[in-house]
Amino acid sequence: MTRVDALVIGGGPAGLMAADALLSEGRRVLLAEAKPSVARKFLMAGKSGLNLTKDEPSEAFHSAYGGSEPSLRAALTEFGTGAVQHWAVGLGQPVFTGSSGRVFPRAMKASPLLRAWLRRLDGMGLELRTRWRWQGWDGAVALFETPEGAQRVTSGATVLALGGASWARLGSDGAWAPVLGALGVGLAPFAPSNAGVLVDWSSHMTRHFGAPVKNALFRAGAMANRGEAVISVRGLEGGGIYPLTPALREGHGLTIDLLPDLSTGALAARLSARPRGKQSLSSWLRKTLKLPPVTLALLQDCARPLPVTPEALSSILKALPVPVAGLRPMDEAISTAGGLRFDALTPDLMLTARPGCFCAGEMLDWEAPTGGYLLTACLATGRQAGRSAAGWLNRAP
């Protein structure tokens, strides 16, 4: 039997931040992680450039989380975009802001930041246990399956930061849901978020796999997002598509405005000003509108046979319907919607069904697009859960 002040289960950004907050209050903290090392999804996400947060006014930032539950909004107010940047700098990782407002560490990668953070936590006395998989509770005792056999831990407070249900190989497998569900805790079904879409391309698209569709406006239902998406073997993926996942989940169709800087009328006028003559339709469009090969191929694959009048062609170019066959599987999504409902928690993120147990990170039922919002909310709720757990310990007899 191991006894500690506080037990943190889950070694992603939310769990590490909760441990940081508890250690800062002078508490003895044990952090248990099921994988052989911590923050695997964090490291994977940072391979192509770690997007820490988004530098924008608070109201615009909060709006990215939809309605934003009061508990989530409070956590983000306490630890928002400015605080995230200050935190990274405090770990010896200077940051910079790109033209889109996205904030990155100058090193770009996640590994230098994680190493500095773990050194800090180790210096504060964190007891880290890897390959410890949580099995639930036996009364007040937390149970773990480990390479050394069954382990039992008692603590004055617990923080669960167990992740969502995407990227199971990196630790976010949603296996905690049945344990909490058995306690009668309210759970929203998991669903893919920030996911690519499935499209059954014709064989003509094969040579364009890996090519980006740039500077387009993607629409689904009432949602729209300007960016780019990559043609893949299985469909479309990328920052232009991901924010539309909520609308696509609801069954709304996907359209692409291939020339968002031109109105339909201006586009029709440009096509009318240059008669097609004996040119092929593709050659005429390429020369007249300077469309790249991937855009022409996409146009032909999604809307063949193409209309020939400038007006009808303009309408297709401004709202190309993509025959989406569904979203990529949840385990391939960047994040998930659903999880632990906020009405199962007190305002300070404590489970009403289990006093002294606090929850944080992607296991909570919130959703946000990529662009720094996901990581910021994980850090903010982890900090809030850790601070709340410390307050619980301070009030305990």
Rank of each mutant, 00 (worst) to 15 (best):
R152S: 15
G156H: 12
V159F: 02
V159D: 04
L162G: 03
G164E: 02
S166F: 06
W167E: 01
W167P: 00
W167M: 06
A168T: 06
A168F: 12
A168C: 01
G171W: 03
G171R: 05
S172N: 07
G174T: 06
A175Q: 12
W176Y: 12
W176K: 07
A177S: 14
A177M: 12
P178G: 10
P178W: 09
V179Y: 07
G181V: 03
G184Q: 08
G184I: 10
V185Y: 05
A191L: 02
P192A: 15
A195S: 14
G196P: 06
G196L: 05
D200E: 14
D200N: 13
W201R: 08
W201A: 04
W201M: 11
S203T: 11
S203L: 11
H204Q: 14
H204D: 15
M205C: 09
R207P: 01
H208T: 00
H208D: 10
F209Y: 15
A211W: 12
A211H: 15
K214R: 14
N215M: 09
N215R: 13
A216M: 09
A216S: 14
A216P: 06
R219L: 14
A220Q: 05
G221C: 10
M223V: 08
N225G: 02
R226N: 02
G227A: 10
G227F: 11
E228D: 15
E228S: 12
V230A: 02
I231P: 04
G235V: 08
G239H: 13
G240V: 09
G240R: 08
Y242K: 07
L244S: 09
R249P: 10
E250I: 03
H252M: 08
L254P: 04
T255N: 11
L258P: 06
P260A: 10
D261H: 13
